[in-house]
Simulated scan of single mutants.
Amino acid sequence: MTMSLPIPLFDAMLRGMVLALLALLAALLGRDRPALPAARAAAALAAGLAVQVASSMPWFEQSAPRLWQAPLVGIAVGNAALLWIFVQALFDDGFAFRPVHALAWAAASGLGTLNCAVLAHSGSAVAPFTTALQRVLPGLFAVLTMIAAAKGWRGDLIEGRRRLRAFIVIAGVAYTLLQLAARLASPDGRLSDAGATLDTALLLCIVAPLACSMLRMTATELFPSARAMAPPEPGPLPAPPPPPSHTAADATPARPETPPPTPSPAEALAAGNGQANAADAAEQALVDALLRLMADEQAYRSEQLSVASLAARLAVPEYRLRRAINQRLGYRNFSAFVNGFRLREAQAALSDPARRALPVLTIALEAGFQSIGPFNRAFKAATGATPSEYRRQKLADS
């Protein structure tokens, strides 16, 4: 009895599981925000990977006519570009599709199709160059994907999304490079039966944790809500809470002589609610201290401001500060939170007749922006007008 039968069955089982998880991911990302770029990019990537998984079966690669395989190979090559686009759309709340994204996918898939259909075995002088380029493209897009996932990681205020970034950087890029190395080691660029099964198993090991991670995250963690897409400016600062008063009796509480009685279920529930209320009050106190630090001491003006530096000044762990800014103030990334204060100062300066002659660049630098370009873009995104237009409008009304 040979072992040839279980291997194809095992391969088919793995491919079926990958296809089911890809369908689940596409449905998950399109469930709540179907119009968002991330959901559309996810649907495209899931469809492309499904084609890749189905068309890379060894028997199909070995028996199907080359012209049949050509468009499927093109889709598989284009998946590297789709992964890059998807990662940008998922982690950049302000992402919008641009012509360069369509061009990148069309160039990658077109090259794969052309090589498979025409150039691969034509003996053409350009065939070695186009084949080498096709094999380099996945590595190039892997680097771009890693950059897109790592960009903004420090300022990301959503813990689940921060972990997702790290997983995609490590697992996604490693899979792309391992697949590239395996195909480069093959004389004709095809995987052996065992290699194809291993490739599918590796893809399953990536898609399954990704699906589980996204299932645990809420829709507002994955996608920006309408409020997060246009976050409010920091509101008026609350009055500082009065300092607690301590007495000698408070400092040295009497020790009970007998162990306390076991609480009843109702008492345990009340105690749990009390702990939750205490945690809620602690988080609000942190937010109050943060807003005072930003407004009274104008911490937002510092060019080196970061979550780490603010957390150190407030003497709290970074994760607590990120959670407070995200859950209490509604911001998904740190730069949007800081720019809210900077833009509020700039708007006040541009509306002040006494500062009419002050250059816009000076106002931007005083508010904490490091150059005029980012200031102009952030200002127009927040107000719908350039700083100069905003100033003319405000001073004309005064």
Rank of each mutant, 00 (worst) to 15 (best):
M217C: 14
S225L: 13
L310V: 10
E267A: 15
P253L: 14
A219H: 13
L293W: 02
P231G: 12
A251D: 10
S309W: 00
S306W: 01
P253W: 03
T262A: 15
A248L: 15
T252G: 02
P261S: 15
G235D: 10
P260W: 04
P236F: 02
P232K: 12
A249F: 05
T218R: 14
A226P: 00
V287G: 04
P232G: 09
A219G: 11
Q275I: 15
C212Y: 06
A308F: 02
V207Y: 09
V307R: 10
G235Y: 01
G274I: 02
P224L: 10
D250M: 05
F223P: 00
A266H: 11
T220C: 10
V287D: 05
P244Y: 12
L310G: 06
T220M: 09
A226W: 03
P234Y: 08
A276P: 03
T218P: 00
Q304S: 08
D296G: 00
D296V: 14
P242M: 08
R292H: 09
A254R: 07
R301Y: 01
T247S: 15
P261M: 10
P234F: 13
P232D: 08
G272F: 06
A279C: 02
A266T: 09
M214A: 11
L291A: 11
Q284L: 13
P241M: 11
S309I: 02
N277Y: 10
L237H: 05
T247Q: 09
Q304P: 00
A268M: 12
S245Y: 04
P236R: 14
P263I: 06
A268Y: 12
A276F: 05
A285G: 14
S306F: 02
A276E: 12
A311E: 02
A249K: 11
A219N: 03
P244F: 11
A308E: 03
L291K: 13
A299N: 06
A282I: 01
L222A: 00
R227F: 03
V207H: 09
A239P: 08
A228L: 04
E233K: 09
G272M: 07
T218G: 15
E283G: 09
M229Q: 15
A268F: 07
P234C: 10
P241E: 15
P263F: 10
T262K: 05
A228V: 04
S309D: 02
S213T: 12
P209K: 01
A208V: 03
L286T: 04
V207S: 04
D296Y: 01
G235H: 03
E257G: 04
P236A: 05
P259Y: 01
L237D: 03
R216W: 08
F223T: 13
A278V: 08
A219Y: 05
P209Q: 05
E221D: 14
P238H: 08
L290W: 10
Q284P: 00
E257R: 06
M217N: 01
L310W: 09
M229E: 10
Q304V: 00
V287K: 04
